[in-house]
Design a protein around this nucleic acid. Structure first.
Ligand code: FES
Ligand code: FES
Lengths: 143, 143
DNA sequence: TCTTAAATATGATTTTTATCATATTATTAT
DNA sequence: ATAATAATATGATAAAAATCATATTTAAGA
């Protein structure tokens, strides 16, 4: 479903949504431990996310990563797009390339409705919304 | 979602369901081309499936792979279990191991219903049923 | 019984993904 | 200016998945 990297990225972004803002940036070493991901690994992912404007960062002393309000307003799927590419979520379950509603593969009929729903939710739900779920105790981050 | 190997396996099994039976076995070289999978690769997968009694086989001249009626009555998920392991489909989307309905991860609430539905369908639908969809023209196999 | 045709077992190679490491650049504060 | 700090760019290594190759075993037919 999701690559390891995407999972890590989602965890990191939600962690930032919960604990950071323009005035409170967080260094990679203070992210990796609570979300339980190796520092060098998450560092690389955070750089990719920053380059893609999913998250924000500044370097030097007092620097670190954080989410602006604009960042938080983005849908979850943007994270996945950057790390895994959208195709991973949208392509045919059997990897038949000429497949569509008119010419569905054998799994299409039993899976595609659910998958479409998942996609819709990933496109609809924002980082902010998910982080608020956590804040309210409706869901839990790590460990 | 599914590994490459699982996708190949599903294609091969459905192909066998459509074109083989006890009296009409099919050799690996006659399977690999129509389903568009490298011969050596699908050979290995077919052997795994055979060992796990998902499909049947006999060796020597006139030998080959085929599906018995018993084989065909099995649910699709059995194929995936053998190749990928069930955990791939059931484990937490964020790989948090102590996760459950009581302590859902942030993605759980927006994805788990759909995923459960997919699981149910994979457990419910048999190889035979899916192959009949193809036979009736309700779905299409390769290319 | 011997040859041939097929799957089976086993393992090598390649590619992709995951993980680790470090030199460089930008920013802050002295 | 300069020193210290933190992200950035880049690339190396390790592990896993995908792919390829082949010697061995079993069954059929001559
Ligand atoms: S998932 Fe294969 S055709 Fe849609
Ligand atoms: S998918 Fe993560 S808790 Fe269910």
């Amino acid at each position: 479903m999701l690559s390891n990297s995407s999972k890590y990225a989602v965890k990191a972004v939600l962690f930032l949504a919960l604990h950071s803002n323009e005035d409170c940036k967080i260094m990679v070493k203070d992210i990796s431990e609570p979300i339980n991901v190796p520092q060098a690994y998450i560092a690389k992912l955070l750089q990719e996310l920053s380059r893609a404007n999913i998250i924000s960062s500044t370097r030097g002393p007092k620097g670190g990563f954080y989410l602006s309000e604009t960042n938080k307003a983005q849908p979850i799927i943007n994270i996945l797009k950057v790390i895994d590419g959208e195709k991973r979520l949208t392509s045919c379950m059997l990897s038949l390339d000429m497949c569509n509603e008119k010419k569905p593969c054998p799994l299409h009929n039993i899976l595609s409705t659910s998958r479409t729903t998942i996609l819709e939710n990933l496109r609809k739900k924002t980082i902010k919304e998910l982080s608020e779920d956590v804040k309210k105790g409706n869901s839990f981050l790590p460990l």
